[in-house]
Structure formats: structure tokens, C-alpha cells
Nucleic acid binder design. Structure first.
Length: 429
RNA sequence: GGAGAGGUGGCCGAGUGGUCGAAGGCGCAGCACUGGAAAUGCUGUAUAGGGGCAACUCUAUCGAGGGUUCGAAUCCCUCCCUCUCCGCCA
């Protein structure tokens, strides 16, 4: 959420920055509301001060011997009642206005960082790094896509998953299930060794949590909801981890707080009919290991580089070629002020595919979630960052396509062998 | 799910209608004392919003929301949460 003071004092700055995201908004009405809200608050609190004074006077008079029902006290009572009515009326206006303003503000995305490259859509994203040598098909070979490999090796069931749930769900089996588990453990251990505290949060989250991290109110159609309970299936661990510290004040010396969370993630994928219908790329339920930082505003830029590097380290440890791109202002997510995407090379598909998104959100989520830190006297909002480290299903896809062998087996990176129990997936006999 | 108890500041804990944002203690910070420390003493020590260059000041907040009252931490209602016992359950 954006700062109300900024809205009151400098709405043009907000409009300018939102324009960089391709958003044309006229904030004059909102500014008006914010100012009116402040005026109402001033009137109301002055009246309340009057009321408080009268209340005290009554007490003093009675203590001094005035008759509790005498005319002197009665006059004060009448005055008190009159003020009470006025306050109630003002309060109602104020609340209505505030709710309306907040509702509007919650729909506005974060302002892009000054450093974020301007652009309209993904075509304007900027590649900042390439790592590894992408595998391409030799003259006499054909590279399979991961779902072909997985099907051949019996790693998952898609048809039967429809029976269990519906399309876009997958059931991992045998070595497939084992590989998924190995990857989760591998990633958790890798990050845990770098100072990330492991957290296994609830994956049903309430709407306050979704609002706090930015998924609500705008993206309600992207999440699954348990209608009877004000609970939703979390679309990313970013949601519960943000709310881990919602409404808290954290001592500055404890920052940064770094968490690594494994959770299943659930997304409706509305509007993506027909895309990535096969395999592990786009599912309603997938596993993800998420990195999350709560940090001091002065250090968030450096933290962003670090969290990205920590995500990249997973791909490097798994010997998966990738590139890092910086998203342009038009392609960034709602809560982000700056984002690096990691795209892994999928040899079978012959393309780079997003496997991690590392964003710094500035104080955007912190303001929505009221997460502050205390340094010296006052408190201020801290900064939050999140990054996938990594999407597990897509990692498996990349490993299958990258490690595929002519004999039909899949060779796995050495780093994974202790977790998987072998450095190779062989066709089951 | 049933029965009971309870939710007060960073923590413990007092406060059952009046000047209470809230005694006392602990903790923490500063100062004094000390060669240094401990002990001791003094002072300070919540959050949010508004106004003010500032000192400062106004309002709100004692789980949340509503009500009674001139006035509510204190009385009433609803909800949430925690604890104990019973039931159920992985």
C-alpha cells in the first residue's frame, strides 16, 4: 500500500511512477478524500477534547459537593450529550471515508524503484546475466521434453490425477516423488546453511494475510478459497511468511530476518487455458521453496542482490544453465518495486523458462501488514524481499531435460545424489 | 464438540465507574557514585494519527467490536484468542 501522506502532499509523484508501470490514474479524488479525512479527524478530536474536559468537570463538581442531579451538573451533562452526538456523526463520516480510501489504495500497485528499467511488457525486460552452457540437440539426437521423459520413466501420473482432482494437477510416483522430496530437502539445506531460518507455515491463510502481501483485493480470482472459513489456499509461501510478523515491531538489531519456507502453492491459473498443459510447468498445486527477508530500508538494495544470488546458487549447484533478467516496470508484479527473474534453460523445449522471481517490495507489504522495526526512539516500516529458491516442479523439469541420456536414463547432478540416493534415474524394470 | 478459568504496557502484576495511558516490580537506557564493575540512587522508558520549526500539544488504544453513562480497564452484549478438564482425532 502507498503512503497516505505522500498521497496528500504529492499525488503527482505517485501518478508519474505508476505511469511507468503503464497505469494511468487520476489521484485527485483520492487526494481530496485523504485531505478531507484529515480535516474530519481534526474536528472530531477537538470535540472529543471538549467532551473529556466536561467529563472531568462533572467529576470534580460532584466531588466538591455539588448535587449530582442539580442544575449545575445537569447543564454539563446536556453539553456532554450534545458533544457526544456530534462526535458520533463525525466519526461515522470519518470511518466511511477511511474505509473507502483504504479500499482504493489497496488496489494500487507498488511504485517501481528508480533503478527499475522502464518498459511495457516482457519484451522490454533486460537480461543481466547468463550462466552455464545451454544444452542443445546434437546432429543425430532429439531431445525430449520433460513430460515425455517423466512419462517414459513413470515419474508421474497426469490422467489419474484428473480422477483425483482435476486437470493441472499431477501425482508424482516412485522416483518422481522421491526426486521432488530430494529437491525440497536439498534446497532447504542449502539455504539453511546460509543463515536462513527454516519455517513450515500454515498453507491455509486468512484474507488479512493475503491482503498484507498484496494478493487481495485485486487478485482474488487467482487463489482457491475455502468458502465457509475465510481461509484460502496459499498461492505462495510469501503470504504466510509476510504475516508471520504482521503487526509486529522488530528491534533493529535483529534485522535482517531471513526465512526459507517450503510450501505447496495453489493457483487457479485463471486465463491460462491451453498454455503449458503438459507436464510440471503450470499446475494448480506445486511445491516451492521460498526465500524471504525482513530488512532495514538502508540495506534492501544489497539484500535484493543477495537473495537473487542465493536463488542462483541453487541452479549452479544443480548445474542448470540459466539467465537472470531484470523485469521492466510494465512486467513487474503488483507488490514489487524491483524484480529479477531467473530463467532456467529447458533443453527439450529449447527455451528459457522462469524458475524463480526475486523481488524487493520496499515498504509496500510492510505498510499493508504493519511490520515495523525499532531503531533508537521511533519505529519505521521495514522492507521485505522474496525470492523463489526454487520452484521445485520446474526444477525437476529442467533436471530431466538437462540430464537426459541416449539410453533413456537421466543423469542427476552430484550435489543431489546424497538426497536422491543415486546420481541417475533409470527406467524401472 | 462439551464444561470451566482467563486475556491490562517489553515482561510480571495492581486496579470493579471519575482527573488512569494506567500503581508497584522486573527489564532496558541515560546520569550519579566507582580505579573499573556489582550494589545503590536519580531520571527516563508504549503505539498510531493530527497540529507545531521546536519545546510541546490534542485524540485514540487495557484481546476485538458494539452498548449503558456527562465520564468505562472497571458495568452489559457479541465475537476472537489462550489455558485446564472431558470427548474426538493424525
Amino acid at each position: 500500500m502507498l503512503d497516505q501522506r505522500l498521497l496528500r502532499d504529492n499525488p503527482d509523484l505517485i501518478s508519474q511512477q505508476l505511469a511507468r508501470r503503464g497505469l494511468q490514474v487520476d489521484l485527485s479524488a483520492l487526494q481530496q478524500m485523504a485531505r478531507q479525512g484529515r480535516d474530519l479527524e481534526e474536528q472530531r478530536s477537538n470535540l472529543q477534547a471538549d467532551g473529556n474536559r466536561i467529563g472531568k468537570e462533572v467529576g470534580l463538581k460532584i466531588k466538591a459537593g455539588a448535587a449530582p442531579n442539580g442544575p449545575e451538573v445537569q447543564a454539563l451533562r446536556d453539553e456532554g450529550n450534545r458533544i457526544k452526538q456530534q462526535v458520533a456523526a463525525l466519526e461515522e463520516q470519518e470511518k466511511g471515508l477511511e474505509a473507502q480510501l483504504r479500499e482504493q489504495l489497496l488496489t494500487l500497485p507498488n511504485l517501481p524503484a528508480a533503478e527499475a528499467p522502464d518498459g511495457r511488457d516482457e519484451r522490454d525486460n533486460v537480461e543481466v546475466k547468463r550462466w552455464g552452457t545451454p544444452r542443445t540437440a546434437g546432429l543425430d539426437e532429439e531431445l525430449e521434453e520433460h513430460w515425455q521423459i517423466a512419462e517414459r520413466l513413470g515419474l508421474f501420473e497426469t490422467e489419474r490425477s484428473v480422477r483425483i482432482a482435476q486437470s493441472r494437477f499431477v501425482t508424482l510416483l516412485g522416483q518422481g516423488a522421491r526426486l521432488e522430496r530430494a529437491l525440497i530437502n536439498f534446497m532447504l539445506d542449502l539455504h539453511g546453511g546460509k543463515g536462513y531460518r527454516e519455517v513450515l507455515p500454515p498453507i491455509l491463510v486468512n484474507s488479512a494475510s493475503l491482503t498484507g502481501s498484496g494478493q487481495l483485493p485485486k487478485f482474488a480470482e487467482e487463489s482457491f478459497r475455502c468458502a465457509e472459513d475465510d481461509l484460502w489456499l496459499t498461492p505462495t509461501a510469501e503470504v504466510p511468511v509476510t504475516s508471520l510478523h504482521r503487526d509486529e515491531v522488530i528491534p533493529a538489531e535483529q534485522l535482517p530476518l531471513k526465512y526459507v519456507a517450503y510450501t505447496p502453492c495453489f493457483r487457479r491459473e485463471a486465463g491460462s487455458y491451453g498454455r503449458d498443459t503438459r507436464g510440471l510447468i503450470r499446475l494448480h498445486q506445486f511445491n516451492k521453496v521460498e526465500l524471504y527477508w525482513f530488512c532495514h530500508p538502508d540495506h534492501s538494495a544489497e539484500a535484493h542482490r543477495q537473495i537473487t544470488a542465493d536463488a542462483e546458487a541453487v541452479l549452479e549447484a544443480l548445474e542448470l544453465p540459466y539467465r537472470t533478467i531484470e523485469l521492466c516496470t510494465g512486467d513487474m508484479g503488483f507488490s514489487a518495486s524491483r524484480t529479477y527473474d531467473l530463467e532456467v534453460w529447458l533443453p527439450g523445449a529449447g527455451a528459457y523458462r522462469e524458475i524463480s522471481s526475486c523481488s524487493v517490495c520496499g515498504d509496500f507489504q510492510a505498510r499493508r501488514s504493519a511490520i515495523r522495526f525499532k531503531e533508537g526512539k521511533g519505529t519505521q516500516l521495514l522492507h521485505t524481499l522474496n525470492g523463489s529458491g526454487l520452484a521445485v516442479g520446474r526444477t525437476m523439469a529442467a533436471l530431466l531435460e538437462t540430464g537426459q541420456q541416449r539410453d533413456g536414463s537421466v543423469r542427476l547432478p552430484q550435489a543431489l545424489a546424497p538426497y536422491f540416493g543415486s546420481d541417475r534415474i533409470k527406467p524401472s524394470v
